[in-house]
Amino acid sequence: MLKKRIIPCLDIRDGRVVKGVKFENLRDSGDPVELAYRYMQEGADELVFLDITATQDARRTLIEWVKKVAEVLLIPFTVGGGIRNLSDVEAILYAGADKISINSIAVKNPQIIEEIAKQFGSQFVVVAIDTKKKENQNQVFISGGKIGTGLQTENWCKQVENLGAGEILLTSMDHDGEKNGFAIDILKKITNTVKIPVIASGGAGNVEHFLEVFQKTQVTAALAASVFHYKIIPIVELKQFLHKNSIPIRYEKN
């Protein structure tokens, strides 16, 4: 049986993990390589890295750490943030990332989804979508949630699927950081609309929130950042809890 995936997300700036990560016995708590390895050992099914660097040298630094992460990580990982064109995509994939995630660029130039899917395959393209309730509608926001696009989230999800996206990473901005649970309504709606995998993001505060999103919606994965970073939820315990509650979850049996 296919398992539900648990995905920690790491924000990277200038090749360093931001947000104080509280793993014990780490020589360097900001090193993406060491953290990625630790998450893998704890049972993460996949990792997502979002590069939030805004400098000119961003890309070179990014390629360097992606290569290093790929050398030690034995689980799939996605890299997103600041991807502008096909050559950025190619460089990141050949550095060893398994998927790339695009957000603002996909809204500005939807054809890029089709181009990436054609050249590298749909499974490499994750479209990240930030959604927010506005005037009783679900609307897509870009540029870190600062700019409204006027696009209706349901329509945009359908459109990215048609353009060849392999997966949707849906973040509810109304729920993000609130730790009050995932945005069940919109996730339910979107998973009933598209036939590609949807990753739930935004709102995880405790283990029950993960159970709820897997029980009430068809999402195939749930992503969170701070609850894993700050060890509010140890991944091992989360997986045991979900398993006990009959959610199909992966355990390393060896």
Binding site: M1, L2, K3, K4, D45, S122, K195, P197, A221, R250
Partner: peptide, 13 residues
Amino acid sequence: PSDDIIPHMGWNN
């Protein structure tokens, strides 16, 4: 068959 999400992606036994 397209009875479910395609591709089959993720961990399976």
